[in-house]
Nucleic acid binder design. Sequence first.
DNA 1: AGGTAGTGCTTGAACTTTCAAGCATGAACG
DNA 2: CGTTCATGCTTGAAAGTTCAAGCACTACCT
Lengths: 167, 167
Amino acid sequence: MATKHEDGPRWLSDEEQQVWRTYLQATMLLDDHLDRQLQRDAKLPHLYYALLVQLGEAPRRRLRMTELAKQAKITRSRLSHAIARLEKNGWVRREDCPSDRRGQNAILTERGAEVLAEAAPGHVAAVRQALFDRLTPEQQKSLGEIMKIVAEGLQPCEAGADLPWLR
Amino acid sequence: MATKHEDGPRWLSDEEQQVWRTYLQATMLLDDHLDRQLQRDAKLPHLYYALLVQLGEAPRRRLRMTELAKQAKITRSRLSHAIARLEKNGWVRREDCPSDRRGQNAILTERGAEVLAEAAPGHVAAVRQALFDRLTPEQQKSLGEIMKIVAEGLQPCEAGADLPWLR
DNA sequence: AGGTAGTGCTTGAACTTTCAAGCATGAACG
DNA sequence: CGTTCATGCTTGAAAGTTCAAGCACTACCT
């Protein structure tokens, strides 16, 4: 009797249930929508586009594999396959890391940068049309706050890492 | 000069950009999180779980394939493969539709209902812990409204279908 | 040195999703 | 009837993702 448990698990209220289903539908529809748009206009899936963006913003258009995986929130394995495909398309190339011989840098090629520049406007327009144009400024702000909370709650406890009471 | 175009495409402001990235991260992290939880606890991906839920709520635990696909927001093809796998596991079975010989009903089996009942509490707990427990009631409400707007903006114009000026 | 553990990245197999046909039925029209 | 077109669902192959090893290198400890 020391600890207290919820025997009947706390179910979702009707309102919560409603919110949750709408969330699932909306995120699924939006992701599909953007995937199709990019596949049509730029011949590449959303995630791959995101990788090009990350590389394009990185200091010398290059990033260590692990770093890129971390930023894109995907596994190293997945990244490995993805970069393999982007490399085959000539949009990214690899380079051995000088300082650590285990390391690889993924580098956005000139051709890759062009593809990115061509795809970006259409993509931004799609995001606007599907999301931002439909929301009030307050809703945009609120969405940002909510997503921040969710994201931070699911990070593998890295960022600050000032949790010495766990080690 | 009759119509006016934005030549330089309207970019995203810094705030919008921030919101958008956080959204992408949060939705990706949450989806991965739930997928893993279900894979671990119930040996099945999130989408498949959702299909069982839909079937479980349907009138006689059965639904026409196309109807199920529509509710779950996925293609008929995808559903076809998915049901094939669920059928192999013995959680769903098929039945020819009496009224339309082209039709198939997907039916939740007894075994399928059990799996669902076992998986549900853990899943709900995960959703709570990752989402609802972290948000204020106002934020929950706001999230629901926002997602409703987004979802409705992306539906293939079906629901009301009171848009005769398009036909 | 040698041993051990951890990091960085890749690989192949199994699985899921998408894409483009395809088959069968139903509905409308001559 | 016979055509034609839409609907309901399936299929196989290609593309993408995950999982479990695996290889090579670094860091640390003795």
